[in-house]
Computed example of a mutant assay.
Amino acid sequence: MVMSKFFETLPEGYGYVVLAGTGSVFVNMWMAINVGRARKKFEVPYPEMYSSSSKEFNCIQRAHQNTLETYPQFLMLLFVGGLQYPKISAAAGAVYLAGRIAYALGYYTGDPEKRRWGAVGHIAELVLLGNVLSLAAHQLGWVGHRHCRMRF
Rank of each mutant, 00 (worst) to 15 (best):
K87Q: 12
Y107V: 01
A38G: 10
F57M: 06
Y103C: 02
R100N: 07
A94E: 08
L140P: 03
C148H: 14
L77K: 00
L128W: 00
L128N: 01
S54L: 05
Y50V: 14
R115P: 08
A91T: 12
G23L: 11
Y16D: 13
Y14I: 04
L105Q: 14
M3D: 12
Y96P: 00
N58W: 03
Q73H: 09
R146D: 09
A102K: 11
T22E: 03
Y46W: 14
G130A: 08
M3C: 04
Y50R: 09
A124I: 00
N34Y: 04
S52D: 14
L128I: 00
N131V: 02
K40V: 13
G130Y: 00
G121L: 01
G144H: 08
Q65A: 14
K55I: 10
F57N: 07
A137I: 09
K41W: 10
T22P: 01
Q61R: 07
S24I: 00
G106Q: 06
I88V: 15
G15P: 06
L78R: 01
A137P: 03
P112S: 05
K40M: 11
L128D: 00
E69C: 07
L140V: 06
L68R: 08
N66G: 13
I33G: 09
W117M: 09
G144N: 08
M31L: 11
S134V: 10
R149L: 05
H138F: 03
D111Q: 08
N58A: 09
G82Q: 05
R39I: 06
V2Q: 13
G106S: 05
W30Q: 06
Y107M: 14
A104F: 14
N66R: 06
Y71Q: 07
W30G: 12
F7E: 12
K87Y: 10
F79Q: 02
I88D: 00
N28W: 08
Y107Q: 07
I33V: 15
G118S: 09
L97H: 05
G118T: 09
N34D: 14
K5C: 09
P45N: 12
P112K: 04
Q65L: 07
I101N: 08
A90W: 01
G93M: 01
G118H: 10
K40I: 15
L133S: 03
H138W: 05
P47G: 13
A38Q: 08
A20Y: 05
M76F: 13
V17T: 02
L128M: 11
G21N: 03
K41H: 14
R100E: 02
A119D: 12
Y14S: 03
Q73N: 07
K114C: 07
G141T: 07
Y71H: 09
G13F: 01
F74P: 02
E43G: 10
R151T: 13
G82H: 01
G21Y: 02
A104Q: 06
G110T: 11
V17Y: 02
M29T: 14
L133D: 02
M1L: 14
L140C: 11
S53V: 10
L126V: 12
I60N: 01
G141Y: 07
G23W: 07
N34C: 13
A137S: 13
V35N: 03
M1V: 11
K114Q: 13
Y107L: 09
F42C: 10
A119W: 15
M76W: 08
A32Y: 05
